[in-house]
């Protein structure tokens, strides 16, 4: 075991929460028809969000993407308010105005997720600039996917972070697909994203994004370096989303990727792999796992129940925005 027992249990719990949350959304999405917004699920990609949430402090900043449930929960974002938000309800983290793609919990440093590819990358760098100006030792963490590295604003943002040596951690979860388009039709084969970013003068490291312990160590090392004033770090983690780009279903049959490829990745299930490791290392036993799982599922079920009971917001109750809305 390379991480201590307490940390290992935290990482495992965070991954379970993300997994159960996403799978519950998937299970209820079509049958209940109460989550009436696009949802991009993180099932299969739980390790990196859990590791980042664990490695960062609560006052560190995080910005994220369309696939942000994991990042939000990993950072400690309120579960009930996220589920309410996906239901468009008043107690949602964005008061029901944002939906699945616009999550926020400033109380734990989750500054926001938005749904334009690469859209929050400069926002995260700007938070990094503010940290430098205010001379605190926080870190600003920017989550992005592989396709975001094809956007111009990615290069603009990394460049500025390097020029000003800002306290920014870029975490790229490379899951090989942008919607249905494989990486190889979007970027030259054989060119690694991390090496390319290294070429921009930014320290860059790659790793196995389905190994939560490895992810945690690499992120922790990067965070420590950034906190020590050594400038931005870019981390690229290889991983894979199990379900369709947007929505609750599996889509291996529609032709853009193969069932075989999915099965290969499913064998590398980050939750199961870590669970086996914990059992093997005697950190946890089967009964503890069962207890943790049923506790987590109960938390998630409760969140759905609360969301269901909550009210919808009123379109005309927009006192907060009176100056913005004409």
């Amino acid at each position: 075991m390379t991480v201590d027992k307490k940390t290992a249990l935290e990482l495992y719990s965070k991954m379970l929460l993300i997994r159960f949350c996403e799978e519950s959304i998937a299970a209820r999405y079509h049958s209940e028809k109460k989550m009436r917004c696009p949802t991009h699920l993180s099932t299969g990609q739980e390790a990196v969000p859990a590791a980042a949430g664990q490695a960062l402090r609560s006052d560190d900043f995080v910005v994220s993407t369309h696939r942000s449930h994991g990042h939000y929960l990993g950072k400690g974002g309120d579960l009930n308010r996220m589920i309410a938000e996906i239901h468009g309800k008043k107690s949602g983290c964005s008061r029901g105005w944002g939906g699945s793609m616009h999550l926020i919990d400033r109380s734990v440093g989750f500054v926001g997720s938005t749904a334009i590819v690469a859209g929050t990358i400069p926002v995260g760098v700007g938070l990094g600039l503010s940290i430098k100006l205010k001379k605190t030792d926080q870190v600003s963490c920017v989550f992005l996917g592989d396709a975001a590295t094809e956007e111009g604003v990615f290069y603009e943002s990394v460049n500025f972070a390097v020029v000003k040596q800002l306290p920014v951690l870029f975490i790229c979860e490379n899951n090989l697909y942008s919607v249905y388009s494989h990486l190889k039709v979007r970027q030259p084969e054989g060119r690694s994203i991390a090496s390319m970013v290294q070429g921009m003068g930014c320290s860059a490291v790659s790793g196995n994004g389905n190994d939560v312990a490895e992810s945690y160590e690499k992120i922790s090392t990067a965070v420590a370096s950034i906190r020590n004033g050594n400038g931005p770090v870019f981390l690229e983690f290889a991983t894979y989303r199990w379900r369709e780009h947007c929505g609750p279903d599996f889509d291996n049959h529609i032709g853009y990727r193969s069932e075989e490829e999915f099965k290969e990745w499913k064998k590398k299930d980050p939750v199961e792999a870590f669970e086996n490791k914990l059992l093997l290392d005697n950190v946890i036993d089967k009964s503890m796992i069962d207890e943790l799982k049923s506790m987590t599922q109960a938390l998630v079920d409760n969140a759905f129940e609360l969301a269901d009971r909550d009210e919808f917001p009123d379109f005309y109750d927009n006192s907060v925005f009176k100056e913005v809305i004409r």
Binding site: V63, G126, L133, V153, E156, F160
Partner: peptide, 24 residues
């Protein structure tokens, strides 16, 4: 507090947004 910038109009706008979210 007063500086030149890279030719990155979109990025620098997002950077202004991010900084403003933390009181700048």
């Amino acid at each position: 507090r007063v500086f030149d910038m890279p030719c990155s109009e979109n990025g620098m706008t997002g950077i202004a947004i991010g900084a403003s979210l933390n009181g700048i």
